[in-house]
């Protein structure tokens, strides 16, 4: 009987492990608990989500210097941080690219770009490119909105910032704003995932 229990336990463990493996390959889905990280900011300080004690959640954006789609969204990302940091949803930008493959995305160039544009949010370097695969980011820009709960940081939205990268004045759906507004009002996020064209992450 004991042997049977042990075998059963082993079976469950193997099944669970294989599921975990599948999830980690594909990255997060809505409802996943997102990992925290310890990454270097452009001011050489180390940043983790847990350090932001007052936050109700986070707007995590994988973005970079070189990608024209990311550049097209820089001003809108600054505006998001200005609007939502004080409401408890700060922007945390992470550059996932390997600077050996994309020179414009080096740590030094990140510092330059952040200064030029006056970034109001942390712009972190995913050194060794360990964080973006856990999230499942595939491109820049790629947004993950996390809600801080007692179970951890729950993924509530994955996708684009809005529905028009080319022309802000022609935007019809502000996906990220709508999602954060819903979370701030304790409502269900209506559009949970969207897709947009972006630059593949350079490994």
């Amino acid at each position: 009987m004991k042997k049977l229990k042990l075998a059963l336990l082993l079976f469950v463990a193997v099944v669970a492990a294989s599921f975990t493996l599948v999830t980690s390959e594909k990255g997060y889905e809505i409802g996943s608990i997102a990992t925290d990280f310890t990454l270097k900011n452009i001011d050489n300080q180390i940043v983790s989500l847990r350090d932001m004690k007052d936050a109700k959640g986070y707007i995590v954006i994988f973005t970079c210097n070189h990608c024209p789609y990311a550049v097209a969204y820089e001003d809108r990302i600054i505006a998001l941080d200005k609007k939502y940091k004080k409401l408890g949803y700060p922007v945390i930008a992470i550059n996932p690219n390997n600077p050996e493959k994309q020179k414009e995305d080096s740590f030094e160039k990140m510092q330059v770009r952040a200064k030029e544009k006056g970034f109001t949010f942390p712009y972190l370097f995913d050194e060794g490119q360990k964080i973006y695969p856990q999230y499942g980011a595939t491109k820049t820009p790629h947004v993950y909105i996390l809600e801080k709960t007692n179970k951890g940081n729950v993924v509530k939205y994955i996708g684009a910032i809005d529905d028009n990268h080319a022309d802000e004045s022609a935007v019809k759906e502000k996906y990220v704003e709508n999602a954060v507004n819903a979370l701030l009002n304790n409502k269900e996020v209506s559009v949970k995932t969207t897709k947009a064209i972006g630059c593949s992450i350079k490994v």
């Binding site: 996708g159 684009a160 529905d163 028009n164 990268h165 080319a166 022309d167 022609a170 019809k172 969207t194 897709k195 947009a196 064209i197």
Partner: peptide
């Protein structure tokens, strides 16, 4: 066609 969410899939 900037509204890529409408056509990518």
């Amino acid at each position: 066609d900037p509204d890529a969410n409408s056509w990518i899939e």
